[in-house]
Amino acid sequence: MSGSHPTTVESPWARRALIGVGFLFLALFLFLPLVMVFAGALAKGWQVFFDALVDPDALAAIRLTLLVAGISVPVNAVFGVAAAWAIAKFDFRGKSLLISLIDLPFSVSPVVSGLVFVLLFGAQGWLGPWLTEHGVRIIFAVPGIVLATVFVTFPFVARELIPLMAEQGRDDEEAARSLAATGWQTFWHVTLPNIRWGLLYGVLLCNARAMGEFGAVSVVSGHIRGLTNTMPLHVEILYNEYDFVGAFAVASLLASLALVTLGVKTVLEWRFGIHRAGAAH
């Protein structure tokens, strides 16, 4: 056991410099902006901060954001598991096409995603006249915002699970089937326990994006205050009204939700001693 380990041949000085650069980068690009958001929110004290959050329009935005995330995350969790299952455990024609399609929302700009829904459901769109006739409103109403969010966030769970499930292979499932388990039994007792951490991680990422999505939602929202403004849109509106404390107060709440998400993930990983081997991209 003599001599240096092959991966640590750098001098201590170089190592320290590298670590220092890493920390400096994090501080500059992650920590500092975060501090600025909270500092901006509290610039005029706690009272103004709370007033900005309990403003009816802000409350409506918070409710809408939670509603949208509450719908789109479960939908995408189900879709993600189904898609990953199909891709990882079965061979079928068009499999690579399906994988590419799942990645589509990542590669398309959110603005384009939003415009697609306007073209489909807008008053001048393909389905617009039919929808108007039947009094169904999708664009510039909550359903459009949910659809846009679902579209933008649907790769998160599937992308997290596909490599994990592919690596785990089909042996466990085949063993279960050979012991006469039904498809559902196999899924609940074999597959799901194997993927639960990957699934959780995907759901958390999906949730973070669903609450934070700006571009696609901005296109389909119509920006009606107190009605179709989500938190990110409300932040922009307040900022444009020169209400900087209000904007930062709502932004800090949004950031806090993200931090809570991160905290939950860390606690779970630590609590169960999980390392997400194989789940990484």
Binding site: V75, V78, V136, R137, A141, P143, L147, V150
Partner: peptide, 15 residues
């Protein structure tokens, strides 16, 4: 189906 039902259900509330 769930998506469509949810969508139509929601659009009923928004008038």
């Amino acid at each position: 189906a769930a998506l469509m039902i949810g969508t139509i259900g929601l659009s009923a509330c928004s008038g």
